[in-house]
Measured scan of single mutants.
Amino acid sequence: DSWHDTVDGIELELHGADEELLKLAKELLKRGVSEEEVRRIIEELLK
């Protein structure tokens, strides 16, 4: 799946992010949310 590559990229960027955020990112990508949107959501949550 192409979203796996996206998640791997996000995981590299979010090496400090907790497991729950990564699960959320994967779930959003699986549901068709764009990579940009996922990054934006996670950045908001990390604030």
Rank of each mutant, 00 (worst) to 15 (best):
D1K: 03
D1V: 07
D1E: 13
D1N: 11
S2Y: 10
S2F: 11
S2I: 09
W3C: 05
W3E: 11
W3G: 11
W3I: 12
W3N: 10
W3L: 10
W3S: 14
H4T: 08
H4A: 08
D5L: 05
D5Q: 08
D5P: 14
T6G: 11
T6V: 12
T6E: 10
T6Q: 12
T6S: 10
V7F: 15
V7I: 12
V7R: 05
V7T: 11
V7C: 01
D8K: 06
D8A: 14
G9C: 05
G9N: 10
G9R: 13
G9H: 12
G9V: 12
I10R: 05
I10Y: 09
E11F: 09
E11G: 13
L12M: 10
L12I: 14
L12C: 05
L12T: 05
E13C: 03
E13G: 07
E13H: 04
E13F: 02
E13Y: 01
E13M: 05
E13P: 07
E13A: 02
E13T: 03
E13D: 09
E13K: 02
L14P: 05
L14I: 15
L14V: 07
L14W: 08
H15R: 05
G16I: 13
G16T: 12
G16L: 11
G16P: 04
G16H: 06
A17W: 13
D18H: 13
D18S: 15
D18P: 14
D18F: 09
D18Y: 11
E19P: 15
E19N: 08
E20A: 15
E20R: 14
E20M: 14
E20L: 11
E20Y: 15
E20H: 11
E20F: 15
L21H: 03
L21Y: 04
L21S: 02
L21V: 09
L21I: 11
L21T: 06
L21Q: 02
L22Y: 15
L22D: 02
L22F: 10
K23T: 06
K23A: 10
K23Q: 09
L24A: 02
L24N: 01
L24P: 00
L24G: 00
A25W: 06
A25R: 10
A25Y: 06
K26D: 03
K26R: 15
K26M: 08
E27H: 11
E27Y: 12
L28H: 00
L28I: 01
L28G: 00
L28A: 01
L29K: 05
L29Q: 02
L29F: 05
L29N: 01
K30F: 11
K30Q: 08
K30N: 14
K30C: 02
R31N: 09
R31I: 06
R31E: 05
R31G: 06
R31A: 08
G32Q: 01
G32N: 01
G32D: 01
V33C: 09
V33F: 15
V33Q: 04
V33I: 07
S34W: 02
S34L: 04
S34P: 12
E35H: 14
E35F: 14
E35Y: 15
E36G: 08
E36C: 02
E37I: 12
E37L: 09
E37V: 08
E37C: 06
E37Q: 08
E37H: 04
V38H: 00
V38N: 00
V38G: 01
V38M: 03
V38W: 03
V38T: 03
V38K: 01
V38Y: 02
R39A: 04
R39C: 03
R40D: 02
R40W: 08
R40H: 06
R40T: 05
I41V: 04
I41Y: 07
I42T: 01
I42N: 00
I42W: 01
E43M: 15
E43L: 15
E43Q: 15
E43H: 15
E44D: 10
E44L: 13
E44Q: 10
L45A: 06
L45I: 09
L46S: 04
L46D: 01
L46N: 03
L46V: 06
K47F: 11
K47N: 10
K47C: 02
